[in-house]
Design a protein around this nucleic acid. Structure first.
Lengths: 224, 224
DNA sequence: ATTGACCTATTGGCTAGGCCACTGAACCAC
DNA sequence: GTGGTTCAGTGGCCTAGCCAATAGGTCAAT
């Protein structure tokens, strides 16, 4: 039924070429004309493929210079590498603190009414769950996702996504402690208030405190 | 400086057209040939724009039939998404600030004498280069690498490595400004002093100030 | 009247070839 | 050295055209 579009194949071939030739970020792709003859397609098709790769963020094409590789799709390796690490929790906390504090600050500067609504919705869901005796894990995730969206930084968002798996583990552990969900809810309220008040410094501080509180439990749990 | 790519404009115009004409999911766009004459561009460019819109999931193009609109809700964001790469400089700054400020703070807590020696060596190299009229790019890189090492966090270190290529661009641009290398050297001294004094807050602040100073130049350079 | 095969206009897919604009580096004049 | 200038390489975009898939009509067979 659906014939594969040529530019898709070409984009795939270029991606493979990047992977198999150990290309690193910043390296240049061969010229369009060369790619065209080498892959047996027209330059227009190469151009389409590059548009697709550009929209995805894999390359950036510069007039008069060439197509530069930006994203080496090597991101999954990081999570694996950390996973292999035995005492990884402190590192996750550090990274989370670095990213989320900044994200909270940016969110305080850039949040729109829609973002605030989404954040409130997450808080409501969390509160309902906690009052019902739950841990509020889902609301927690929604909240952090909403804040990250409000920060409006693809790069930071991407990095958070990278460590999201690892964070999830600590989140579940932390919220398993008695009394934790209620404290956590209060933390989140403080963060939300600072974001609503458009106070970057307060938002960053509140997020930092929150992450650190999680860290206490995590480290306790790490001793065994 | 950054010329807007034609296909981006076209994609934007098509998106606007979709929004303003109350197009719903499933409706068909005008034929490529018509769009081409109407927007005053070639069919090849229309095709590129459609590829971009297809990649972001706004439309699906069917051979012999036409381009069908799939996503009405997300249309306003599409142009943003496509243009995201154009001005990614601010994003790089944000990410760098988030990571390096934390790294500096951790370095202040964890630095050993060896780390301090390595940091000093980088400063010396930078000073020598700057006094000789150079930009001190190498020393700059060595310094940040040394601080990152002192922070002793594999995860943060790997994340910095991911954006290192992007950071390098801004670094070179920034240090190309007159008077920049000297200011930069002073910045680095302040950071090193805070790390030596084992003062995490001061180190983070100094690093933050430094990154922000770079950002000013970068944004200036981004204007046209 | 319904069905099925077959045209045909319309539309996207892709190519070929060409000119223009931008970049970077080598070169030259000062 | 410093600052223009030139030039080769590269992407941006266009024109023109043919091929391939789809939809919708026509028309014969049932």
């Amino acid at each position: 039924m659906q014939r594969p579009r040529l530019y898709e194949q070409v984009a795939g071939q270029i991606t493979e070429w990047i992977a198999s030739n150990d290309i690193r970020s910043g390296d240049r792709l061969p010229p369009e004309r060369e790619l065209a003859t080498q892959l047996g397609v027209s330059r227009a098709t190469i151009s389409q493929a590059l548009v697709a790769l550009e929209v995805v963020g894999a390359v950036v094409v510069r007039h008069g210079d060439g197509a530069i590789v930006t994203d080496v799709a090597g991101t999954p390796r990081i999570v694996e590498a950390i996973r292999a690490h035995a005492n990884r929790l402190p590192e996750i906390i550090d990274a989370r603190d670095a990213l989320e504090s900044k994200i909270a600050a940016l969110a305080a500067q850039r949040r729109t009414d829609e973002h605030l609504a989404r954040i409130d919705a997450a808080l409501d869901a969390m509160e309902a769950d906690v009052l019902a005796g739950g841990r509020g894990v889902e609301g927690d995730e929604l909240f952090h996702a909403a804040v990250t969206a409000a920060a409006a930084s693809d790069l930071l968002s991407k990095m958070m996504q990278e460590i999201s798996e690892l964070v999830l583990e600590t989140r579940i552990e932390s919220l398993g402690q008695p009394g934790r969900p209620r404290e956590s809810l209060a933390d989140h309220r403080r963060i939300a208030d600072a974001i609503r008040a458009a106070d970057p410094a307060a938002a960053a501080r509140a997020m930092h405190d929150h992450v650190m509180r999680v860290s206490d439990v995590a480290i306790l749990h790490d001793d065994e």
